[in-house]
Design a protein around this nucleic acid. Structure first.
Length: 170
DNA sequence: AAAGTGATCATG
DNA sequence: ATGATCACTTTG
């Protein structure tokens, strides 16, 4: 068992909806440059499933921005939205298949822009992998999960807008 | 309801 | 080079 396996949980190789469901209830561990650790349990996630998903940034193919989505599961995809808010995603699924899970909320910071601010996550982490500045811990919590449509994807096809790919702790 | 904010990508 | 478009949040 390589050390990589400890850092990158098996469920991240699932397709994004399965990985997104598994990530709810896990604990995000942020190690700051000065060594301090911040912890927060994930409460809400969303799945973005490859080039066929019109809501996924990789829908228009590989570009400089979407490049990291094609990398290995466990890679971080962090980008700036609306000029102000960093969005944290974790790449999932098979390598070369551009899928990711958006972390939409953690306990104490509900909202994708708020949690990155609370945990000090910026574009510097884009393209890095779990196990460094950011890790995932499983403390055994098994929250009850509810599904809902994804948020903020009015540009996607109606079919894709309807998919229940948002997962949250009840 | 609408502003605030800047990278990114498709145009030309 | 310019312009549209944002996986949002806060304020009124």
């Amino acid at each position: 068992m390589s050390s990589l396996r400890k850092l990158i949980p098996d469920y991240l190789w699932l397709d994004a909806p399965g990985a997104a469901r598994a990530l709810v209830g896990k604990v995000l561990v942020r190690r700051l440059p000065d060594g301090t650790e911040l912890r927060a349990r994930i409460t809400q996630t969303e799945a973005y499933l490859g080039e066929a998903d019109t809501a996924c940034h990789a829908h228009h193919g590989r570009t400089k921005r979407t490049e990291v989505l094609y990398h290995r599961a466990g890679t971080l995809y962090v980008y700036l939205c609306y000029g102000m808010y960093w969005m944290l995603n974790i790449v999932t699924g098979a390598e070369e298949d551009p899928q990711a899970v958006l972390i939409r909320g953690v306990e104490g910071a509900e909202g994708p822009g708020k949690l990155t601010k609370a945990l000090g996550i910026t574009g510097e982490l884009n393209g890095t992998e779990l196990g460094g500045a950011l890790s995932i811990e499983d403390d055994g919590a098994k929250p009850e999960i509810v599904c809902a449509p994804r948020v903020g994807i009015g540009y996607a096809s109606e079919d894709d807008q309807r998919r229940l790919w948002r997962f949250m702790a009840k």
